[in-house]
Design a protein around this nucleic acid. Sequence first.
DNA 1: GGTTTTCATTGAACTAGTTCAATCGTTTTT
DNA 2: AAAAACGATTGAACTAGTTCAATGAAAACC
Lengths: 198, 198
Amino acid sequence: MKSEIDHSLVLKNVRNYINITDEEADFFVSLLTYRRLKKKQFLLQAYDVCKYETFIVKGCLKEYFTDYENDKDHIIRFVTEGTWTSDVESFAKETPSSLNIEAMEDCELLQLDYSSLELLFQTYPKFERWCRLIFEKNYIEFQSRIIKNLSLSGKEKYLDFLSEYPGLSNRIPQHQIAAYLGITPEFLSKIRQQLARE
Amino acid sequence: MKSEIDHSLVLKNVRNYINITDEEADFFVSLLTYRRLKKKQFLLQAYDVCKYETFIVKGCLKEYFTDYENDKDHIIRFVTEGTWTSDVESFAKETPSSLNIEAMEDCELLQLDYSSLELLFQTYPKFERWCRLIFEKNYIEFQSRIIKNLSLSGKEKYLDFLSEYPGLSNRIPQHQIAAYLGITPEFLSKIRQQLARE
DNA sequence: GGTTTTCATTGAACTAGTTCAATCGTTTTT
DNA sequence: AAAAACGATTGAACTAGTTCAATGAAAACC
């Protein structure tokens, strides 16, 4: 039953960026679709077109790119409660996606499709600002990620990950953290061994 | 004299994302300040607050981060004619910037300060959309950069750079390309040597 | 026009991180 | 409860990329 769904987290997300009235909030919420995903299920598979912006109410997913040449996955982001996920390019241009998005835990999600989002922008243009500010935030995070990739050693990247995403290392297998950091699982294991000795 | 300044490129930038009337264009243009920068001058120095969004009419700049620990510069982006540059975080939050932005050639620029930009958004909210779409584009580019950093070898990154930014390698010293790719200048030289032999 | 600074190249020694293969504990599946 | 799949660890051999130092060429500077 729709009335059971808790929209407080997603409204908190919006109100973090813009002020909205109850009426605007109701309209926004009416556009959202609730969805569950079991661990290991795909929210998006590469080559499919990404049809939704998805807000994570509960759970954790990975956005990753598969390098078939070398048979390796590269994780772009782990996304958890309170954040939005999609293949931005695929969603915006309606082109086949280059990313996979896969549940690492059982998830509860809220989705917004392309036409609903455009309707939202037309009805209440202030939501453009909200969307812009989210992209601004993501820009800053990606830039920080690029700087760290360029300047830190494997060990430094791992320590930075632990402090930037506290608690996440308990929810995610170690070899996936390695795929996020851009090192091999074996090398991550050796880094941890070295840290344990210290 | 102000009438000499050519705003066609910056208006083309806006109209690439949204439709605007001549009146809106005039208002937008009235907010811009023209500025020149000589080669090696700084548009922004780390620890200063970034006061402007800057559009590049002519020239080339580098956005980079200095790692004082290891005495190394890491280049985030080269930005050329037709693109906007700033330290996004510093500009948005009015905090000291972590980046330097430096002219690699003599530059002609158009600048928009924080209050002018907010006035623009208030007067014509459709410019929020323009700004959002630019961030969307930058998000896609940064994500692509992250994937390449994680998955490509030095040689592959260099070849990708040449094909992604054709012509740029002639405008930029080689060791700066190395600082962008995340390899040493010596290693880039060896990559080129190897490519020349093939 | 000569000098200084900046930039690219090359080689030799080195190291951070990879690869491969084996082992072992822990979930998951049936 | 057994079997299968998955995940972390360890070691030995390897390689992509670094570091340091020397050399030469070309800009930039006075």
